[in-house]
Simulated scan of single mutants.
Amino acid sequence: MDEHDSEVFVRSLYEQAAPALYAFIYRFTRDRALAEDVLQEVFVRAWRRAGHLEPRSDALRRWLFAATRNHLIDVWRARTKLSVTTYCEQVAAAPHVVDDVDRIVQRRVLTDAIDELTPKHRDVLMERYFQCRSIAETARRLGVSSGTVKSRTYHALRALRVLLDEGGIATR
């Protein structure tokens, strides 16, 4: 991708994603100027990686939120370079902010990954893990054999693991 294509790509990406990213950033910073700075840095990173990013893909959205989260953590760390005592007090109080960001990003990546599964794989995981049904109950509800439920569960979990790894969530 040449420089002109990169600029067009990032401009289009900015128009589509900036409002959601800004709201996400502002929710954690409560500082308009800082939120704008973080947003700008994320799009500079996107511009630098434009040749490696897939336009209009779910992976691109996950990458944007992961890059935003990482930059927010960097900003938070830079702001907490204080004395050891003050730093320890802030670490004890602040993980909720970082955890909230992680949890939101992970929930979004998980939701997107589940949506990308085939309907058969999604259905078996929903029955087994979200409805807490046994293999026999799942087989009965889906109208398939127990062996099919086991096989689909195995393959669905493998596919989900790949999607989560692509989304930046460690699965091992």
Results as ranks from 00 to 15, higher is better:
76 W>T: 14
24 F>K: 00
48 R>C: 09
19 P>D: 07
45 R>L: 01
160 L>C: 02
5 D>G: 07
79 R>P: 04
27 R>L: 14
30 R>E: 15
158 R>D: 11
12 S>C: 01
130 F>N: 13
12 S>H: 02
166 E>Y: 04
55 P>W: 11
133 R>S: 06
127 E>A: 01
75 V>A: 02
126 M>I: 10
66 A>T: 13
73 I>N: 03
12 S>E: 11
142 L>V: 10
90 Q>V: 13
97 V>Q: 13
149 V>I: 01
41 E>R: 02
36 E>G: 10
128 R>G: 05
58 D>C: 11
148 T>M: 06
147 G>V: 10
120 K>T: 07
89 E>Q: 13
167 G>S: 12
144 V>E: 09
50 A>F: 02
88 C>G: 06
98 V>R: 06
100 D>W: 08
74 D>Y: 05
82 L>T: 15
123 D>C: 08
23 A>M: 09
146 S>G: 15
104 I>S: 11
127 E>D: 10
12 S>T: 12
131 Q>Y: 08
4 H>G: 11
39 L>A: 03
156 A>G: 01
149 V>Y: 03
108 R>Q: 12
64 L>P: 03
52 H>P: 00
109 V>H: 08
48 R>N: 13
8 V>M: 14
70 N>F: 06
14 Y>H: 06
77 R>D: 14
14 Y>W: 05
41 E>G: 06
137 E>R: 01
122 R>G: 05
121 H>Q: 13
91 V>W: 09
27 R>A: 15
41 E>A: 05
142 L>Y: 03
131 Q>G: 00
96 H>Y: 15
143 G>T: 04
39 L>P: 03
